[in-house]
Computed example of a mutant assay.
Amino acid sequence: MPGTVGQQPAEARQAIERCRDRIGEIIELHAAELLAPAYHARNRHMVDRAQMVIGFPLEGPEGTSGTWQTINYASSQGKPRLIVPV
């Protein structure tokens, strides 16, 4: 997550607590502000640690959404990608 668990909505914090026994690690990036750069950093962090990326972009032409930025970053890293338009 881009910030900390404490910055997440109550529902997200509760979901984490309910699943705590199945969560191996929570990585907090400690972003000062939860704006686009923090989300992009989070997405790159996930791609860097993944063997494959599955993206669910909105149907239509390739755009500049965070989903496409993440898919394209995975491509630049030579990671296999599965793109499932929704």
Rank of each mutant, 00 (worst) to 15 (best):
G78Q: 05
V84S: 03
V86T: 14
R42N: 04
I83L: 04
L29W: 01
A31W: 02
R22M: 09
R22K: 13
R22P: 03
Q69R: 15
E59K: 12
N43W: 02
V84R: 11
H45C: 12
G66N: 06
S76I: 01
Y73I: 00
D21Q: 03
I27G: 12
E25N: 08
T70P: 00
Q8V: 14
Y39G: 14
E11V: 15
L34D: 07
R20H: 13
L34C: 10
V86A: 09
P2T: 14
P9M: 12
Q77F: 05
M46N: 08
R49H: 11
A31F: 09
W68F: 00
P61G: 08
G24F: 12
S65Y: 02
P9C: 12
L29R: 06
Q51C: 10
G3K: 12
G24L: 10
G60Y: 01
T70W: 00
E62V: 07
I71T: 03
S75K: 15
E25S: 06
G24Q: 13
R81G: 03
L58D: 11
T67M: 01
H45M: 06
G3E: 10
P85N: 00
Q8N: 08
P57S: 10
P61H: 03
P57N: 07
V53W: 03
Q7I: 04
A31V: 05
E11Y: 12
I23N: 05
E28M: 05
A12R: 02
T67K: 04
V53L: 11
G55R: 10
Q69I: 05
H45R: 08
T64A: 11
I54C: 11
A74I: 00
A50G: 08
R44H: 04
M1V: 11
A15L: 12
L58P: 00
E33H: 10
M52G: 00
E17V: 11
W68H: 02
E33Y: 03
P80Q: 01
H40T: 13
E17L: 13
Q14H: 09
C19S: 15
W68A: 00
F56D: 08
Q77I: 05
A74G: 01
A31S: 15
T4S: 15
E33M: 09
A32R: 15
Q14N: 14
Q8I: 10
M46L: 15
P2M: 05
I26Y: 07
M52F: 06
A31G: 05
Q77T: 09
H40N: 10
V47R: 01
Q7P: 03
G60K: 00
A41I: 01
P37T: 05
P85K: 01
H30Y: 08
A32C: 04
Y39M: 08
R18F: 14
